[in-house]
Amino acid sequence: MTGAVLRLDEVGKSYQTGTLHVDALRGIDLAIDEGEYVAIMGPSGSGKSTLMHILGCLDTPTSGSYRLVGVDVGELSEDELAQVRNRLIGFVFQQFNLLAHLTALRNVELPLAYAGVPGEQRRRRALAALDRVGLADRVDHRPRELSGGQQQRVAIARALVTDPALILADEPTGNLDSRSTRDVLALFDELHDQGRTIVLITHEEEVAAEAQRVLRIHDGELRTPAVSR
């Protein structure tokens, strides 16, 4: 492997809710190399979602530093963070988070539109991404005309289309039946085989079992030493 895509040093995150002080994350040290397939596991309330949000630059740590592809994320402006999310990260959510009024193609084109990719190239790349997830014949369908599994595949195509350094999946199979779950996991496997870096958050053992390395988080701390399997 050619080095760390992301590195967390002593990352902590705390909230103040009224008089209650909550440490959501404490002293997280973590490095993920290019091409790795990592699962982060933990019960609800363990801080795994907070970790995922920090990894995705959707939230900022209150202590420690986070370097993504060598860049210290803590020092970026809001516009630069938007660019990082756009260029370096592809998100897959539990709720799919597709825009209901747009076709599959337009949904996949969206990150390219924000990146300023011209129309013709945008369309070509979005079609290629949809073809990659096996939905070439569904490009003009709107989300409600697609099954849950198909919607999640559209979301994966959207995460892939910018060719990001990191694919972040937050409970991607949480809303899917077992068959769609197998499809989606198979897709992640293929992407991993092609050298993609994938971080997947789940509370299901059988989903985590697909990953190359499993990290367990509990009460805001990593329990499993970060070793490769």
Partner: peptide, 15 residues
């Protein structure tokens, strides 16, 4: 939610 999603996909505040 839509705004959050658009921001996650790389929309800047200006956009």
């Amino acid at each position: 939610r839509e705004i959050g999603l658009r921001k996650a996909l790389g929309a800047t505040p200006t956009v």
